[in-house]
Amino acid sequence: MMKVSVIIPVYGVERFVERCIRSLLEQTLQEVELIVVDDCSPDNSVAIIQRVVEEYPHRLVKFITHETNKGLPAARNTGLAMAKGEYIFHCDSDDFVEPDMLETLYDAAKEKDADIVWCDWFLSFEKNERYMKQPAYGTPMDALKAMLAGQMKFNVWNKLARRRLYVDNGILFPAGYAMGEDMTMMLLFAVAKKVVYVPKAFYHYVKLNSSAYSQNFSLKHFESIKHNIEMVETALRNWFGNILDLEIACMKLEGKYLFLMSSRKDMFRLWQTTYPEANAYIMQNHYISKRRRWVQWSASKHLWCLVCLHHWLIDKLVYGVIYK
């Protein structure tokens, strides 16, 4: 039996994919299967992977190709359907990992009989990196609340989750709704019995264009965000009733916070008209920094000059000059 199944969706990443796949093939954990999902990639990404895989004949690597481009969530689901491992790990094909990542997380999971393990990560730029510390929580509910409210990242790629959580609860990624599809991880925490945090960074999240979101945002992205927020809200209310009202409101605020990472007036209008009922909870969200609350409060008072100033300082100065 495979200990870990690693799902790697591939689309247009020929510049980065060799580093990614080598980092996975060189893991110290041996009982690992790699599942490469070619989402109809238009470049040489898959050919590069196949060439590199030939250098590691002892590794189990499965390839599957979509006949048409279906998007990231559907590619993750394709990988899940093929997975045989006890635990699932998702790796984006333009990122890379430390060689002991899977072994360390798997050992932590087995030692504590945990359903999910998460860890710290690196935000990797062209010339430097930033260490991204994650909070520690003793229960799945505490971790879920922190993810809903924005204190803990719900990304798929710094977490190892028991495959049975997906299978037994019918949890899949939202095919066709790629923006915010990582919110699916919150559903896994909602059904988990035990979780563990490892205070070490293993995953390198490569970010070479910090302003890509604000430049390329579209109405399709907007609909994806709303769909995924409502998917999570519906599931949580079915399972827990109203006990997460505050955290769900904070999730909506954090979801539309993306619209404030810009200086575009149309994005500000989207912020105003999206989940206006959640604005009453801005100052109650003590999971996040005072700075983020201040930006949201400024938007609620239509102080757009302050929102633009924040965007300039963070996006242009911090991530445009200091980290790049």
Rank of each mutant, 00 (worst) to 15 (best):
R293S: 05
V295T: 11
Y131S: 01
A192T: 09
E230C: 11
P135V: 00
L313A: 08
D113W: 00
V46H: 09
S298V: 02
L80I: 04
L144D: 03
K110C: 06
E126M: 10
E18F: 03
D142H: 06
M185A: 12
E31C: 01
A146P: 00
H66N: 15
E181C: 15
V206R: 14
E67P: 04
K316M: 11
F259H: 05
L105D: 00
G150I: 02
Y166H: 08
V295N: 03
A83E: 02
Y137R: 00
G255W: 06
L306T: 09
K153A: 13
I7A: 06
A249C: 09
S218E: 07
K127C: 07
I8R: 01
R291V: 15
L313H: 06
K70G: 04
V37T: 07
I88P: 00
Y56W: 03
A143K: 00
I248Y: 08
L246F: 09
V196T: 14
F16E: 15
N285K: 06
Y287P: 02
I229K: 07
W294N: 12
H90N: 10
E233T: 14
M251W: 07
L313N: 04
T78W: 04
Y56E: 06
D142R: 09
K159R: 12
Y205L: 14
V167A: 12
I322W: 08
D107E: 15
Y213R: 12
D168E: 15
K207L: 15
Y281N: 05
T104L: 01
P57N: 06
V156N: 10
G71N: 03
R164A: 14
M179E: 11
L317F: 14
Y203M: 13
L144W: 01
D120Y: 01
E14F: 04
V232Y: 08
F173Y: 15
Q215W: 13
K220N: 07
V4I: 12
T65E: 07
G85M: 01
Y56T: 03
V318D: 08
D120Q: 02
F240C: 06
E230M: 14
T68F: 13
V4G: 04
A75K: 05
A249T: 05
L105Y: 00
C305H: 11
P135W: 03
E33G: 07
K207Q: 15
R162Y: 01
M251K: 07
L236P: 03
R162Q: 10
E247S: 08
A190W: 12
